[in-house]
Amino acid sequence: MSGKSRRDFLKSTALIGAGVTGLTTTAKAGPQNILSEDRMGVLVDTTVCVGCRNCEWACKDAHNLPAGNLEDYEDRKVLDTKRRPGTDALTVVNEYSHGKNSSLPIDVKVQCMHCDHPACVSACIVGAFTKHENGTVTWDTDMCIGCRYCMAACPFQVPAFEYDKALNPMIMKCDFCFDRTKEGKLPACVEICPVEALTYGKRSDLIKIARDRIKRNPDKYVDHILGETEVGGTSWMYLASKDFAELEFPKLGKNPAPGVSESIQHGIFAYFVPPISLYALLGGIMWITKRRKELDEEVK
């Protein structure tokens, strides 16, 4: 044997082991404070939005997607069909009839809501999604394996997949202009909006502002801030003059979306009680049937 005794070997392995666990614990000990009081959000006031679609242009421009000329976005015919955010446009504006006033349609900007408890983060099997302290939900294209679980998990059906790409297709969605906000800039859509229908600020402030607007104009708004409590709260929140279901928002409960899948999964394996009792039950049935057979044979 070399100069090292068995005792030394055990010591060093114990130390390495402790180090590794130490490392992993520090990595896990720093999960970001995703429900920070200072997390940011956007309040979309659909009663203010004029449907100019400048946000669509600014978004593409900021994300190096083919954007074209800003002037071309004046064509309102695009609004005749309902669109969804996709790989070529991370945000889109859809138009709905006002009902009361035909000359004033309701325009609704659609993009990732940046949930407080994002289902995509919990569904992603490779951990490519991250919820940041400032509210943003981003994903790492290098880690993404293209399983599209995030698309299935998202309650707002936002993530899009580059189906048209044969090689290395990726998931695409609004990243809340994470790179811009890091530099202290505003999200591109917020910055360009001519009427400031998009208000960027602390989520807690935005809720107060939204409540105040509803209180001051009870005839103008429905008394509902979409995103305040839906699926546990979202960073992007909406005000509207008519029921959100009529604006094609999904009807969602207050429980966080990952809660459903997680509770099922966790429930099945909690303290191993359910599996053990299941096996015990099966074992019991086996034992009873076996015993019955034996009794039958004895009778014969």
Partner: peptide, 18 residues
């Protein structure tokens, strides 16, 4: 400035356009 402390009322650009 659109980036500001108090966002309860629209900024100048928003106010004009509205």
């Amino acid at each position: 400035s659109r980036k500001r402390e108090d966002v309860s009322i629209p900024d100048l650009k928003g106010a004009y356009h509205r």
